[in-house]
């Protein structure tokens, strides 16, 4: 274990490293800008004048992404939980019920209603799980671009009288939500399955219900494990929201940049702004999440400092 002062020294080194890296990057960017602006005539006045409009477009990207992300998180959690549960074969469930019923009736014939009820509940559970599996397979097995185009086509064909902006927003949010829901369910499933089964057993042993064990024991541990992949998913989704450019009627960042480029012919300026703003959003997001991760880190849980060997 490194000592506290050692840790401090290391973190100072890290800060210096990061600053250095940022300086070098900025230097390169400044050089590129210099080449573009002075030798190719990149218009700084255009950038200064129109960057507020780009920021406005970026807000739309952020709204759509964030709404889809959080609704998708609800879907992902439910699907992930459903897919993480181990189900027994129906034959064994039925055999257990039969033995139980025979024992309860003390030799008398058990009622058929009990068995029908068991089959009913069992089939619902079974098909919920299979449906979840199929959903995830479809979402992960097809391009997001196709999903967006499909939802959008469906919306404009079935609701042609809606405002085009609303049509675009609606199909964008639906497609992105469905997509991220599928991916997040895989993240949650992995997180839930990684929590040791002894934790659930201990939780049930003090009298917590299934949901109580999930809420107070499994989720808090699983969430700590899945924060990094969930962050990746958010950043990925934000970048994926640029695919909404195909819809055309939603003035999100990429769409706006494209139309500006074609209308004003300030192509390099437009895309410098678009790229810069994406970076401006994604970089702090990962930093903020890193901070959250440190803040809620618990000794012995999740990613640990390596003790001896590194891979």
């Amino acid at each position: 274990m490194p000592s506290a002062s050692e840790n401090q020294r290391r973190s100072r080194v890290r800060i210096v490293d990061i600053l250095l890296a940022i300086l070098v990057t900025l230097g390169i960017l400044a050089y590129i800008l210099d080449v573009l602006a002075l030798r190719w005539g990149l218009s700084t006045t255009y950038i200064a004048k129109s960057y507020p409009n780009y920021l406005k477009a970026a807000w739309i990207s952020l709204y759509v992404t964030t709404i889809a992300y959080f609704i998708g998180m609800g879907i992902g959690f439910v699907l992930g939980w459903a897919r993480s549960v181990q189900t027994l074969p129906l034959a064994r469930v039925m055999a257990a019920r039969r033995r139980e019923a025979v024992a309860a009736a003390d030799g008398g014939s058990p009622g058929a209603g009990l068995f029908l009820g068991t089959v009913f509940v069992y089939s619902i559970k079974y098909y919920v799980r299979r449906t979840a599996d199929a959903y995830v397979a479809i979402i992960r097995g097809t391009p997001l671009f196709v999903q967006i185009v499909f939802v959008w086509s469906a919306v404009i064909v079935f609701y042609p009288r809606l405002d085009p902006l609303f049509q675009g927003l609606l199909s964008g949010v639906i497609a992105l939500t469905a997509n991220t829901g599928g991916y997040q369910s895989e993240i949650f499933r992995a997180g839930i399955q990684t929590v040791h089964s002894g934790q659930v057993e201990a939780a049930r042993a003090i009298g917590l219900s299934r949901w109580g064990a999930m809420r107070y024991i499994v989720l808090p541990q699983a969430v700590r494990l899945v924060i990094p992949p969930l962050t990746n998913e958010y950043i990925g989704l934000l970048k994926a929201s640029s695919l909404l450019a195909v819809v055309g009627s939603v003035p999100e960042l990429t769409t706006f940049g494209r139309s500006e480029a074609f209308q004003t012919f300030h192509i390099f300026e437009a895309f410098a702004l678009v790229v810069g703003i994406y970076l401006l959003i994604t970089f702090p997001v990962s930093k903020v999440v890193e901070w959250i991760e440190r803040r809620y880190r618990v000794p012995g849980l999740g990613i640990q400092a390596p003790r001896t060997a590194r891979v």
Binding site: G198, Q199, A205, G207, L208, V298, L301
Partner: peptide, 24 residues
């Protein structure tokens, strides 16, 4: 069937071989 297992477990404590303390 008509007795919740949670109600039973509240009244009978259990200690496991592998401790199973809540890690977080």
């Amino acid at each position: 069937r008509d007795i919740r297992p949670e109600w039973v477990r509240q009244q009978v404590g259990m200690v496991f071989q592998s401790f199973n303390l809540f890690a977080h």
